[in-house]
Design a binder for these strands. Structure first.
Length: 273
DNA sequence: TTTACTGTTGCAGT
DNA sequence: AACTGCAACAGTAA
């Protein structure tokens, strides 16, 4: 499911629907997604009240009294809230029974998602160890460090944008959109970019991720979204999934190539190598 | 039927 | 240290 705008949309959904509620029981069907002690996971969460739901990069952070639950949706993780009866589904892996009779369900076809239950005091060290970069806002995401990182890297620029250490939140879709908006070919070697190009990448990263949040994320290849509702950002995508379609800027046909193993959409005329 | 691909990240290898 | 390819898993499309 998620790049930053989608995760933020899920966060807002959870904030509205489950904050203030107490978890009465937890049922775990797939323990492999729990990266901390899975033996006591359900018991530790039972009886805890959800105080807040926050986000750092693409990670969700659920606040309990002295503990936090860090949830990463990876490719296909989703949260759904059922008022009463929960239908049977082979991809429902976690069930959080809440004190108002509703059940929060975690669904994940590919089981890539992760759960980590930590003491609140461990949070800072956790994100430091992951080396998560700044949030994509004017205040946090400064141009100078980004310029330095891009200017000294020999990686392909698309791969570099996907590195969460530079800036948190870009994934495969939004990286393509940012590169198109900044008129930079995804295979350019980072250290060959001109200052103006780096600035455009910086500015477009902030603009497009914020736009994604405003639009509630994009709903692609995913029928319904439950929590996080249906976003409309897919209607604003310019190149992702647009193979053969005319470039909105110049009319040239959008192409798709592999860059660092990821499918990458671009305009061969606007984005020269 | 096989193969390649999929909104991610971490690990083993160089 | 920095970079690459692959693995975790299940489904869909060609």
């Amino acid at each position: 499911m998620p790049e930053l705008p989608e995760v933020e949309t899920v966060r807002r959904g959870l904030d509205k629907l489950v904050v203030g509620k107490t978890i009465e029981a937890v049922q775990v069907r797939v323990t492999q997604m729990i990266k901390t002690d899975s033996e006591n996971f359900a018991l530790d969460l039972s009886g805890q009240t959800i105080e807040a739901v926050r986000r750092r990069g693409k990670y969700l952070v659920v606040d309990f009294g002295s503990q936090i639950l860090i949830s990463h949706l990876r490719m296909e993780g989703k949260y759904l809230l059922f008022k009463e009866q929960v239908p049977e589904n082979k991809h429902f892996h976690f069930f959080f029974a809440l004190n108002d009779g509703s059940t929060l369900v975690y669904q994940d076809v590919r089981k890539f998602g992760t759960f980590e239950l930590l003491a609140k005091s461990q949070e800072a060290a956790y994100f430091l160890s992951k080396k998560i970069g700044p949030e994509p806002t004017d205040q946090e995401f400064r141009l100078a460090p980004f310029e330095r990182a891009v200017g000294t890297s020999k990686k392909l620029i698309k791969s570099l944008l996907l590195d969460q250490r530079l800036v948190a939140g870009l994934g495969n879709i939004y990286a393509d959109e940012v590169l198109w908006a900044a008129k930079v070919h995804p295979k350019r070697m980072a250290n060959t970019l001109k200052k103006a190009e780096i600035k455009r990448l910086h500015d477009e990263t902030i603009r497009i991720l914020q736009l994604g949040i405003e639009k509630g994320g994009s709903t692609i290849r995913t029928y319904k979204n439950a929590l996080g509702l249906d976003g409309t950002m897919q209607h604003y995508l310019q190149v992702y999934g647009m193979i053969g379609q005319p470039c909105p800027r110049c009319g040239e046909a959008i192409q798709k190539i592999q860059v660092g193993g990821r499918g990458s959409h671009f305009c061969p005329k606007c984005q020269k190598i």
